[in-house]
Each structure stands twice: as structure tokens, then as C-alpha cells.
């Protein structure tokens, strides 16, 4: 099955001009098919065009992710996911907790769902690794507190960072209730030297905050996020605003949880248990 980017964007609902009939096709795709369709580095399709229209007619896209926790049991799977993301985005590994920078990582249930601890819970869940990343909240506190709009919410729901503008005040780190943000306490390039890297993605500089960007540089091209591509059976990425999308279909039939729902941030990352 092959499809060009234009078609993907239509199907993903990026443009309102497309007939409703086409929008059901997205979730029929196997994850990974998308990247086979569009992988040339210099391509530039109609995404920009589509987004402009989308802005005019209200949000038609809200990107979201589901994490099938039971499929994370194998530590190799977690490692594959983390490595895929951190290599794709040139995330530095300082090797010590004080300087640590991370976009996606695994932690226990107890740490991920701090207010939902249940001592009588199924022991198998207790020891499962929960993948943690930026929740791309619908009502993100980090965006609210940022004094320069260096972190902002895009029309498609992605909470993005403008590293050119960040002054490094770290108010967003205090504001994020999920511990999703890291600060570059040192020059990240000192530890990226000689490591596997992505030549088409920048690094960051010392003194700015960074975090998961939901792979905006990939979804724009019709690709799945790097983590989803690394483990398509664990992670599903799709449009929450479309009632027929892959993620909506999953959420309809599976029991899902979001982290700290009582805070009203409405995360876009759902955990399937």
C-alpha cells in the first residue's frame, strides 16, 4: 500500500476541504506504512497550507498517544523506544542524575501515578515500566507560566518549545506537574561528541529548557513519531479530535488512565492497562 503525503494529510484531517469519507482511512494503516510513503528529506508537501486552513476553521487536530503498558514488560522494548527518541533528537546523556536531560523514560506505576497508589493492586502492574514523556496537555501550566512564550501550544495540540527564545528561567519546570522538562545545565554538545546522532535535527544549547516535541519535525512529513515507529505495537499515535481515529477507537474499547487528572491539565498521553 502506498500513498503520497498529500493523501496522508487529507486523511489525517489536516485540511477541512477533504470529504468526511476519507478521514476514516487513517487508522486502517499499519503504523510504519506512513514513513514508507514519505521519507525523502527535502520533501515539502501541503502541510503548511493545510494548517493555515485548519486554524481558520477551529482545531480539527489534536495529536495524542496511547501507551499499552502491558506490552512494555520487556526492558528491551523500553530501551528501543528511549534510544529511538533520544537519537532522533540528539538528546545528551550526561550519565549523572544532576545534569540529566530526557525526553522519554520509564518509571514505576507508583511514581507515574502518585495519587493512585493502591497497596492491594495487581502485583504485575506494580512492576511494569510506565513510559513517561511530555503529556502535551490541553491546558498546559508550563505555557501559562512562561514569560516569553518560548513554550507554546500549537493549534494541533502539541506543546512546543522555541529554543531560540527560551531565557532559561525554569518557571516551566516548576509549573509542570509531571516532571517532563529538563534543563541544559551544561553544554549538551560536550557529551554528544562521537555518539550516534541525527544529522537533520539540531542540538540544544546550554541554558535552555527542553522536552518531548511529539516529533513535530516528523508528523509534518506524515511520519509517525520516532518512539511509535520503534514500537508500533506498544504506542499508538493519532488524532484525538477525530472520533473515528485510531486512538479514539482504542480509547473506546480499552480502559485508559491519564496522569494526575485532578489537576485539570487534560493530558494527551493515555495509559492502557
Amino acid at each position: 500500500m502506498s500513498m503520497d503525503r498529500r493523501e496522508f494529510i487529507k486523511i489525517a484531517g489536516l485540511t477541512s476541504l477533504v470529504g468526511a469519507g476519507a478521514s476514516g482511512a487513517f487508522q486502517l494503516l499499519e503504523p510504519g506504512v506512513l514513513d514508507a510513503a514519505t521519507h525523502e528529506e527535502h520533501g515539502h508537501g501541503d502541510a503548511a497550507h493545510g494548517q493555515a486552513e485548519e486554524q481558520a476553521s477551529g482545531p480539527k487536530v489534536r495529536w495524542a498517544m496511547t501507551v499499552d503498558v502491558r506490552k512494555c514488560e520487556d526492558p528491551e522494548v523500553v530501551k528501543r523506544i528511549v534510544t529511538a527518541c533520544h537519537t532522533a533528537h540528539n538528546v545528551p546523556d550526561f550519565g549523572n542524575p544532576k545534569d540529566e536531560v530526557k525526553w522519554i523514560w520509564a518509571d514505576t506505576y507508583e511514581h507515574a501515578f502518585t495519587d493512585s497508589a493502591n497497596e492491594f493492586m495487581d502485583k504485575s502492574i506494580e512492576h511494569l515500566p510506565f513510559l513517561l514523556l511530555c503529556n502535551h496537555c490541553d491546558d498546559p501550566p508550563c505555557v501559562r507560566v512562561c514569560p516569553t512564550k518560548a513554550t507554546f501550544k500549537r493549534p494541533d495540540g502539541v506543546v512546543a518549545m522555541d529554543y531560540h527564545r527560551c531565557i532559561g528561567c525554569r518557571f516551566c519546570m516548576a509549573g509542570c506537574p509531571y516532571g517532563s522538562r529538563s534543563f541544559n545545565w551544561r553544554d549538551p554538545r560536550t557529551v554528544l561528541e562521537g555518539k550516534p546522532y541525527n544529522p537533520n535535527f539540531p542540538t540544544r544549547m546550554r541554558g535552555v529548557v527542553e522536552k518531548c516535541n511529539f516529533c513535530v519535525e516528523r508528523i509534518w512529513k506524515g511520519l509517525q513519531p520516532a518512539c511509535v515507529e520503534a514500537a508500533p505495537d506498544v504506542l499508538t499515535f493519532g488524532n484525538l479530535a477525530d472520533p473515528d481515529s485510531n486512538v479514539r477507537q482504542i480509547l473506546r474499547v480499552r480502559v485508559s488512565m491519564r496522569r494526575k487528572p485532578e489537576l485539570g491539565t487534560k493530558p494527551s498521553v493515555f495509559y492502557l492497562v
Binding site: P147, R165, C166, I167
Partner: peptide, 26 residues
């Protein structure tokens, strides 16, 4: 103390150049 705490002091004027009334720091 604010100046020494921020990671990119050279960009501190961004607070004025991109005023954000929603931010308490502003």
C-alpha cells in the same frame, strides 16, 4: 539574583520583547 539564575542572561529582554501578561514572572 534573577539575572544570575537564568540560563540565557543575554536574552533577558525577551520578557519585554515578547510580553506575556498571562505569566506571573512578567
Amino acid at each position: 539574583f534573577i539575572i544570575v539564575d537564568i540560563g540565557q542572561p543575554a536574552r533577558v529582554l525577551n520578557v519585554v520583547l515578547h510580553p506575556t501578561p498571562g505569566s506571573i514572572l512578567f
